[in-house]
Design a protein around this nucleic acid. Structure first.
Lengths: 105, 105
DNA sequence: CGAATCCATAAGTACGTACTTATGTTTCTT
DNA sequence: AAGAAACATAAGTACGTACTTATGGATTCG
């Protein structure tokens, strides 16, 4: 399976994608993450295991806590896939250039 | 459902994503598309309907033929989602800049 | 006009997977 | 030491969906 295939599969689930997005706020434990989701703790753990297997998240154990952290580089293959099609829609490229310019600061 | 949710769902299936990628070669009929895939014609039609509903493909009828064409702009919401995380992995940004530079030519 | 081609839709099936509850392991607290 | 808390894994279930075959409508060909 190609890298982007795993990423598409992993991010296709809305709950799992929401977990990923939530980790954008910073490193968090499973219990922290559980807040605001209407699913059980095992469900969260299972999503985190899937995200970890896809390279989208890293884990750090500390005592009985498990801290999960975003691994945005894990998105690189997916970004590469999308970039192959960017050539075709010039209207979005301006915004992307602005984004890159901001990142230079 | 957000736009990127529909895109992730639609592109999660490997066969459907392969159909999308194949259309990168240019406009094609269902029969053309069928070649090289090990699934039935109805399966192809169903994937095309899903891609069309997601805005990733457009259809043009001519007689008994249905020509399908790539709509790469349909990827924009997905690209926007990914871009929110680009900030974090500088090592890929160089390549993206090169890509944009090439596109300016 | 009749047969063949192109494509879509209908209906049914099989399978993956996102959940649940139950339980075990480890660590912290008192 | 005992109980509670944090997390993972096991096992079972429900549901979505990607396929199949069957069929129908529209167009083209002989």
């Amino acid at each position: 399976m190609t890298a982007e295939a795993a990423l598409f599969r992993t991010l296709a689930d809305p709950t799992r994608r929401a977990v990923f997005e939530r980790l954008g706020d910073g490193e968090m434990t499973v219990s922290d993450l559980r807040q605001g989701f209407s699913v059980s703790q095992p469900a969260i753990s299972q999503h985190l295991a899937a995200l970890k297997a896809a390279g989208l998240v890293s884990e750090r154990r500390a005592g009985r806590n498990a801290y999960y952290r975003l691994r945005p580089e894990g998105l690189a293959p997916l970004a590469g896939w999308v970039d192959r099609y960017r050539t075709f829609w010039p209207e979005r490229i301006g915004k992307l250039k602005d984004l890159l310019k901001d990142m230079d600061q």
